[in-house]
């Protein structure tokens, strides 16, 4: 009885810091995706501005409430618009961002292929 309790206690002490670490890493991972509304070019995780710091706090609090990464990102998108995401979602007009470079690369390869063939003739 005493032994199981001890094991439980030990387990608790070992997992507790791990959980805390996990939460901070999680918060950091989410905050890395959110644009700082003050500095515009950097994520809130790296911004020293007070608003970004408070947004970080908000992320941590919502994680503590048990919200998922997606829910937290949605919370910010609902309020600040999709603009708040440093990496736009791959849908609609945004798809050009994903498709265009690949298309360009494809065309470039085809172009090079014919150019080289003509040149080596």
């Amino acid at each position: 009885m005493k032994k199981t309790f001890l094991i439980f206690l030990l387990g608790f002490f070992f997992t507790f810091p791990a959980m805390a670490q996990n939460r901070d890493q999680q918060a950091r991972a989410i905050a890395d995706q959110l644009r700082c509304p003050v500095c515009r070019g950097i994520p809130i995780a790296e911004s020293p501005s007070e608003l970004a710091q408070n947004m970080m706090k908000q992320v941590r609090e919502q994680l503590d409430e048990g919200k998922s990464e997606e829910e937290i990102l949605n919370y910010f998108v609902e309020r600040y618009g999709e603009w708040i995401l440093l990496k736009p979602k791959p849908k609609g007009i945004n798809l050009t961002l994903w498709v265009f470079p690949a298309l360009l690369l494809g065309f470039g390869i085809i172009f090079l292929f014919f150019a080289v063939r003509r040149w080596s003739k």
Binding site: L51, Q58, R79, Y80
Partner: peptide, 13 residues
């Protein structure tokens, strides 16, 4: 405090 309501409204400045 902590911009809580501001962030809830999507205030950027």
């Amino acid at each position: 405090p902590d911009n809580k309501t501001g962030i809830d409204y999507g205030v950027g400045g």
